[in-house]
Design a protein around this nucleic acid. Sequence first.
DNA 1: GCGTATCGCTACGTTATTTGTAGCACGGGA
DNA 2: TCCCGTGCTACAAATAACGTAGCGATACGC
Lengths: 113, 113
Amino acid sequence: MPKPAAVTKKTVVRGSRTGRPVMALLDLLGRRWTLRIVWELRDGPLTSRALRTACDDASPTVMQARLSELREAGLVELLPGDGYRLTPLGRELMESFLPLHHFAERWSKRMAS
Amino acid sequence: MPKPAAVTKKTVVRGSRTGRPVMALLDLLGRRWTLRIVWELRDGPLTSRALRTACDDASPTVMQARLSELREAGLVELLPGDGYRLTPLGRELMESFLPLHHFAERWSKRMAS
DNA sequence: GCGTATCGCTACGTTATTTGTAGCACGGGA
DNA sequence: TCCCGTGCTACAAATAACGTAGCGATACGC
């Protein structure tokens, strides 16, 4: 097993030495594809391969790693038959991200001008 | 590629920069230390070294790379004498991030139990 | 049964990114 | 002058991600 428990073993290390939860979240979300995965799951469950396709065909290696981390973080769950979906907690995360989505629109317009 | 549209649910955009601002933001923030830098600048300007110390002593190489990206994105600026600080736009980003900060608290409590 | 398809997931070699350490040029005091 | 602190960079080592292939399991149609 190459990567059994990344979140509770490494993430929390790098992020939460000070005990601030936001650091752990910053560390978890500051990895490639993590935020994207949550974002792509906003409209419903996706199979691992559909998720991979949705995420610019990210490599399955890192995809599985992120999914394991997100599952261990209680944000994503696997439903046999339907694929992956956000847990209620993961949905909270997604909704908390919405202001950033709206900011992206303003940011884009501001940068274009 | 192998799967055109197995999931007819959303037909997700492929390519982060093909038109959706949120993808560009996701791409920018999905890099190590980027979100952390914005977060650490929330209370005022910091010198590059103070910022590095605040960010768990991140290497100066990646620090400068992120700062260049953030400056190019119009989110951070350098004031000769005071160090780096958020631009008004960067402050908007930081405020948009606050819900995620609050979520982190709930997430931490939920995970602890 | 068999062949084929999908699913979640993994092995492994190659490539890209990050790290750690050292150091540069510049400027502002003492 | 020398000493600091600033922003910033070089460069090899370590790490993370990529890309391709493939596994075992499951579910179909034949």
